[in-house]
Amino acid sequence: MSDVTALFFNAEIMAKTAGFLLDGLWMTVLLCLVVIPVGALGGLVVAVLAALKRRWLNIALVIYVDVFRALPPLVLLVFVYNVPPFAGYKISELEAVVIAFLLNTSSYYGEIFRAGIESVGRGQWEAARSTGLGWWQTMGWVVLPQAVRNVLPDLVSNTLEVAKLTSIASVIALHELMFAARSAQQATFNYSPLILATVIYFVLLWPVVRLLSRLEHRKIAAR
């Protein structure tokens, strides 16, 4: 059993690699700060375009959303990272992550925003339009604020998933938390850095999970 302690819960190794992991954590935070707003904005664009209810546009949007929800994010990332060099473009790790995440997360955020927009009743549209607001004004000032509030738990939930998903950037050797943990593991021949990374993810994201539980239960209570 002490073998296990030495291999997995080695305080000395954890202390030695903590700084390295914190560098990785910084990159993870940076990734989240880029990828989440970009994906959410992309999703918002998808949902608002869908609300225009143009037949061909809608078909195109459904195909876009379903294709990128069908492809595993890691497959998308590996594809986006490895294919451009064959076309003569050396893509950086960060660029690849941002593009792959935009395609994946905008599809998920798009579905959530769409459901939110649909949850706002026709009466709101009619009331706003009857006071002389235009389509875009109604969307921006009347419908979207209510839509966002109605699907807030889903938005938080998806954001949590995106934050966790940044760990796949380790596969293309972007130096974020998971990559740092694996490098440290390989350098020290010890699994304690992995445990440390697990604990860091848990400590950082647990409050979000708790908040989410609250939001979800309130949503059910409100039914």
Partner: peptide, 19 residues
């Protein structure tokens, strides 16, 4: 719900044989 699945997979891959 808070730990990324990739982290869990790698952890189990190395951890469970040690157990």
């Amino acid at each position: 719900r808070s730990v990324p699945p990739l982290v869990l997979i790698v952890l189990f891959f190395y951890g469970l044989p040690a157990l």
